[in-house]
């Protein structure tokens, strides 16, 4: 790993925190303002690639566990990992890796549609695949009910996946960082 990789991973983890600390943005299509933090995992993968992207997310999660109040709403500390939503936070790491891997594979012919595919599979499908069963286990709920309950967050997450994908495509034009495979 080069010094440049070290700096990129560290600063991306900082960006992840900033996305959560900034006030939530209001979107005309949704009744509630959304925080941009869960976009961080998608962005890390789509812009830094699978390895650096996942490491940036892991670094962020470790800092949250160490007690820095960096999650949206100023939450942090080990208490976050005792709650029922801890699986989503762990899922971010795998989600960033998946998004990064997909973007890397499609790098040469990346367009908005392919980028949305990558952010949605990594940032939603993989994150939910870890977060939902985790919540079901902690809450003692049947899996079906847990899936139904988390469907509430799907519209917001789809908007975030679209936004993250268009950001990734725009940044790629000016600042391509992923080496295609």
């Amino acid at each position: 790993m080069t010094t440049r990789d070290t700096a990129q991973i560290a600063l991306f983890a900082a960006l992840f925190a900033v996305l959560g600390l900034m006030p939530a943005i209001a979107l005309p299509v949704l009744p509630v303002p959304i925080t941009m933090q869960s976009m961080g995992a998608m962005l890390a993968g789509a812009i830094l690639g699978p390895r650096r992207g996942a490491l940036a997310v892991v670094l962020f999660v470790v800092l949250v566990a160490a007690g820095f109040p960096l999650l949206a709403g100023g939450r942090g500390g080990l208490a976050v990992f005792a709650g029922p939503t801890a699986g989503y936070i762990v899922g971010w790491c795998a989600g960033a890796a998946t998004t990064g891997w997909l973007v890397q594979r499609m790098w040469q012919r990346l367009n908005l549609g392919r980028a949305i595919l990558a952010t949605a599979i990594g940032g939603i499908l993989v994150v939910y695949a870890i977060g939902v069963p985790w919540m079901a286990a902690i809450a003692g709920l049947p899996l079906g009910k847990a899936i139904l309950g988390s469907a509430v967050f799907l519209p917001g997450d789809l908007i975030k996946a679209t936004l993250a994908a268009s950001v990734a495509v725009t940044v790629k034009r000016g600042y391509p960082l992923i080496r295609p495979v």
Partner: peptide, 27 residues
Amino acid sequence: GRNGLALVVPLLIRTLRNAELVAAALD
């Protein structure tokens, strides 16, 4: 003010540029 893209893209570019500077300084 309400455009997420207009906020995140410049922030990201600044972050990546900062990373270059930090890496150069560390080296």
